[in-house]
Amino acid sequence: MKSLKFRYIYDFAFDLVDFACEREFKFKRSVKMAEGVFLDFDERNMPFALELIGASKILGVHRKHLNNPNFTVHVEITRNLIKTEINLKYSINQRKFDISVENEIPNDYLMSSIEIIITN
């Protein structure tokens, strides 16, 4: 399993979440995982960013809960599949919420097998 440093950015105005690798990369392609969910790959076919456009709708939460959540993102690529799982945890008035969103598509892009965990 690869360990890379990622940053989390939430753009409230555009309701956009971006999990992006902090290392240098050269963009190659974006793969649509689901409506509004895109996984970006570099020229070595390594995932370096996951974007959620319309994040509050995708995650089923109010925008204000996306400013500083606890999260885990799991990206797994096998010979046959590309999978993403986003886990988001936040609290309101001492009540805890745990949201999970999974997406899976065929690996029609000949991406190499890899597993990456992103946390904050």
Rank of each mutant, 00 (worst) to 15 (best):
M1G: 13
S3H: 05
K5Y: 11
K5P: 06
K5E: 15
K5Q: 14
R7K: 15
Y8F: 08
Y10S: 06
D11H: 08
D11E: 13
F12K: 12
A13F: 13
A13V: 14
D15Y: 03
C21K: 12
E22N: 14
E22P: 02
E22A: 13
E22W: 04
R23W: 03
F25Q: 11
F25G: 12
F25P: 12
K26G: 10
K26I: 15
F27N: 06
K28S: 14
K28Q: 11
K28D: 14
V31S: 00
K32T: 15
M33G: 03
M33S: 01
E35G: 12
G36L: 01
G36F: 00
G36R: 00
V37R: 05
V37D: 04
L39Y: 01
D40P: 00
D40F: 10
D42C: 09
E43S: 14
E43V: 15
R44C: 07
R44Y: 06
M46S: 08
P47Y: 05
L50T: 06
L50C: 09
E51C: 09
L52N: 05
L52H: 04
I53W: 09
I53Q: 11
I53V: 15
I53M: 10
G54K: 02
S56N: 10
S56H: 10
K57D: 14
K57M: 07
L59Y: 01
L59H: 02
G60S: 07
V61D: 02
R63F: 03
R63N: 09
H65W: 09
L66R: 05
L66Y: 02
N67W: 01
N67F: 06
N67M: 09
P69N: 00
N70Q: 10
F71L: 00
F71N: 00
F71S: 00
V73G: 00
H74P: 11
V75Q: 04
E76T: 05
I77W: 01
T78P: 09
T78V: 04
T78N: 04
R79M: 07
N80R: 09
N80A: 08
N80D: 15
I82Q: 00
I82L: 04
K83N: 12
K83E: 13
K83V: 06
I86R: 03
L88S: 03
Y90P: 03
Y90S: 08
Y90W: 04
I92Y: 03
Q94L: 12
Q94H: 06
R95T: 05
K96Y: 06
K96H: 11
F97A: 05
F97I: 11
F97M: 08
F97N: 13
D98N: 13
I99A: 01
I99W: 01
P106G: 07
N107P: 12
Y109R: 07
L110Y: 06
S112V: 02
S113W: 00
S113M: 02
I114K: 08
E115Y: 04
